[in-house]
């Protein structure tokens, strides 16, 4: 089983993407999707870096919901700032110390931070494990760091258990 399906999550994603791209139109596409979902991970297995794929599903779904809601709120916030007076906006560079040392999870956190309220990630300093962030409008830097750490980093650490 392990030899046949080396990466279950990747297989599921390939199957879903292929079915969705063909609008789930006919049975032939389901069979083709199955062939691709089994064949592609086996053929490309040697290119993937080794890492455990054990993720906790329930916190992942909850984080997905939180991020989706925050994207909506963030867009409304940015819209308000853009239409309002410009000299009231207080931008700032903020450095967020990270608690984990996993490049993949760090990248995920950087992407989430880019899409959610008022912040865009600029760089991950791999030597110090610090995430550099630009905030569009910030009053309290400490509160921003705290909210990012509790709202996104804690769930991510829980999901990937690192």
């Amino acid at each position: 089983m392990r030899r046949l399906i080396p990466r279950p999550a990747l297989s599921v994603v390939i199957f879903l993407v292929w079915t969705a791209l063909n609008n789930a139109s006919s049975r032939a596409h389901f069979i083709l999707a199955l062939i691709l979902a089994v064949g592609l991970p086996v053929l490309t297995q040697r290119f993937w870096p080794e890492r455990s794929e054990k993720i906790k599903l329930l916190p992942a779904i909850r984080l997905f919901g939180i991020v989706l809601w925050d994207i909506l709120m963030a867009s409304i916030d940015v819209a308000k700032l853009v239409l309002g007076p410009l000299d009231k906006i207080k931008p700032a560079f903020v450095e967020i110390p990270l608690d984990m040392q996993d490049p993949f999870v760090g990248t995920l956190l950087a992407s989430i931070v880019s899409l959610t309220p008022g912040t865009v990630s600029i760089d991950i300093d791999r030597s110090r494990w610090v995430l550099q962030v630009h905030a569009l409008n910030v009053d309290d830097t400490e509160a921003l760091i705290h909210s990012i750490k509790t709202r996104y980093e804690q769930p991510l650490k829980e999901i990937f258990s690192c």
């Binding site: 963030a74 867009s75 940015v78 853009v82 410009l86 906006i89 931008p91 899409l115 865009v120 630009h134």
Partner: peptide, 16 residues
């Protein structure tokens, strides 16, 4: 188009 600084301008397209 409106924001004055590059790092502020990035916020518009990425989110909105």
């Amino acid at each position: 188009a409106r924001l004055p600084d590059f790092f502020m301008r990035v916020h518009g397209p990425t989110k909105t």
